[in-house]
Computed example of a mutant assay.
Amino acid sequence: MEKKSLFISFVCRFLASLVLFSGSKAIESPQFTVIQSYSNMEIRLYKESSWMSALERGGTSFENSTKQGFHRLYQYIHGANLNSSQLAMTAPVLTTISTRESNYIVRLYLPNGAIPRPNPELNLGLDRWRSHCLAVRKFSGIAKDGSVEKEMEALRISLEKIWNESSGVVVENRFYTIAQYSAPFQVSGRVNEVWMNVSGLTGKGCLPLNKGQF
């Protein structure tokens, strides 16, 4: 009974945090510039950014791994850090999915400023991303196990139509990322994106990935 109560309490706090996604303009997000726009996707150049990450190695599914990883990140921003600091919720929540292994990484954006170290038992890591480019496709509805791979595949096909092998553009296919901006209980108007890293766009600043950008 105690475990059930703790789980219900966490779910309520989880929903309370993410409701900010749909109703507050104060939520901070990583900064980017759209450098190319198409009917069903766009290419963005993101500035340098920092993310706290939770690795779910051998995860059973996108949905479960996202919930479990976010649970640890939630604790971190609500005081489970060496400064006992309360940090603001940001958007989006990212889940990076490996296409070769059953590994998932859930991430939360950290705005500029002092970043407190997480408590060791949370097993979180800090990822610092340099400026890089992303191909982005927006989609609505709830991001589920059965839909995220289809959205990634649709983005991949769109990229193949505009760039061939001789273009010099490299699309990273070892992993892709689902970005969720909406509260989980929001029924309509949900905002999700699928991200794929791209490099090699001449003059656009699209640099190759750092080793730690998975």
Rank of each mutant, 00 (worst) to 15 (best):
Lys3Tyr: 14
Lys4Tyr: 15
Phe14Ser: 13
Leu18Cys: 08
Leu18Met: 06
Leu20Val: 00
Gly23Ile: 15
Gly23Pro: 07
Glu28His: 03
Ser29Phe: 05
Phe32Asp: 10
Thr33Ser: 02
Thr33Val: 01
Ser37Trp: 00
Tyr38Ala: 10
Met41Gly: 02
Glu42Cys: 11
Ile43Met: 10
Arg44Trp: 00
Leu45Met: 01
Lys47Asp: 11
Ser49Leu: 07
Ser50Lys: 00
Ser50Trp: 01
Met52His: 04
Gly59Pro: 00
Thr60Val: 12
Asn64Ala: 09
Phe70Cys: 04
Phe70Lys: 01
Arg72Val: 05
Ile77Pro: 13
His78Lys: 06
Ala80Trp: 10
Asn81Gln: 01
Leu82Ile: 01
Ser84Met: 00
Gln86Met: 14
Gln86Leu: 11
Pro92Thr: 03
Leu94Met: 12
Leu94Trp: 13
Thr95Phe: 08
Thr96Arg: 04
Thr99Asp: 12
Asn103Arg: 12
Tyr104Gly: 09
Val106Lys: 12
Tyr109Asn: 14
Tyr109Gly: 11
Tyr109Pro: 09
Tyr109Val: 09
Leu110Gly: 12
Asn112Phe: 15
Asn112Pro: 15
Ile115Met: 13
Ile115Cys: 13
Arg117Glu: 14
Arg117Val: 15
Asn123Gln: 06
Asn123Trp: 04
Leu124Phe: 10
Gly125Leu: 13
Trp129Ser: 05
Phe139Asp: 00
Ser140Arg: 03
Asp145Gln: 02
Gly146Gln: 14
Glu153Asn: 09
Glu153Arg: 10
Ala154Ser: 12
Arg156Cys: 04
Ile157Pro: 07
Ser158Thr: 04
Lys161Phe: 07
Lys161Asn: 14
Asn164Trp: 04
Ser166Phe: 09
Glu172Asn: 09
Asn173Lys: 06
Ile178Ala: 08
Ala179Ile: 11
Gln180Asn: 06
Ser182Met: 04
Ala183Val: 05
Asn192His: 01
Val194Trp: 05
Asn197Cys: 14
Asn197Ala: 15
Ser199Ile: 06
Gly200His: 08
Gly200Trp: 03
Leu201Gln: 11
Leu209Met: 13
Gln213Leu: 08
